[in-house]
Design a protein around this nucleic acid. Sequence first.
DNA 1: TTAATATCCTACCAAAATGGTAGGGAATTT
DNA 2: AAATTCCCTACCATTTTGGTAGGATATTAA
Lengths: 138, 138
Amino acid sequence: MLSKKTRYAFRALTHLAENYGRGPVLICNISEQKNIPLKFLENILNELKKADLLESKKGKGGGYYLKVSPKKISLATVIRVINGPIALLPCVSLNFYEKCADCDEKHCGMRKMMTITRDATLKILEKKTLQDVLMAGI
Amino acid sequence: MLSKKTRYAFRALTHLAENYGRGPVLICNISEQKNIPLKFLENILNELKKADLLESKKGKGGGYYLKVSPKKISLATVIRVINGPIALLPCVSLNFYEKCADCDEKHCGMRKMMTITRDATLKILEKKTLQDVLMAGI
DNA sequence: TTAATATCCTACCAAAATGGTAGGGAATTT
DNA sequence: AAATTCCCTACCATTTTGGTAGGATATTAA
């Protein structure tokens, strides 16, 4: 399951996607309109910025905005930044790989099943973008 | 990610699958051979029993054994019993559904994306069984 | 009928993750 | 220099995770 934080992140990002190309949006506006605790949102947006998905401006007229088009931000990317691994086992994760303690990876049945599962999941999550979320929401 | 408990459950179940049809297996045997903390394993097996995947016998010659063939136990079933929901959002879960706080389900883009994702994931996890895990491990 | 063998049940516990809050610092604009 | 806005560090309560302890209960065999 995605954490509450990740769901907040998606809500904030779709708001920024709706305002793509119209300049910075204030944290407090997103917070109010999307009903996300202000201080919590602050650090979510900051993490997304550090992950190079957002850009920010300080001072009057400042705020946050998407660094690239909503078409170029996949759901997989967002999930990885805020939620962590997408795979069901660390030993089949592409971005957060960790070796298993006891198993021989060449002959581990679970690993093979989880690899197939990961591929099926990623096929969707890598392809679908913030743009798709917007379009599907109309 | 699957919890450690869920991974223990799968390891225990594959052991029981290997011994399917040969009578009960002792908890302590599974614990030793699969390197799972004994007391923790006790309650994992018990949960699997309550979920109707296992049967048990007390006293000498007792132990645990699969209630049905490894071919009939899907990975999805095991995950749901020990790990919980498979879907990425409660509002798209088939077995653990919960309504979202703020969204109108008919017009929620995220919900639609997560439904597609769930279907892709379940297509694998519902079809693959303990038997497949055994076969893939050879 | 008693001892041995196994599972079953309840309760507890430490460590980590989750979902925040508080308060001030630093950059930018007017 | 004042106002605005993001940025950073630290803290905190609650829940989840990953166990452990100890005895109760059922079954079998002598």
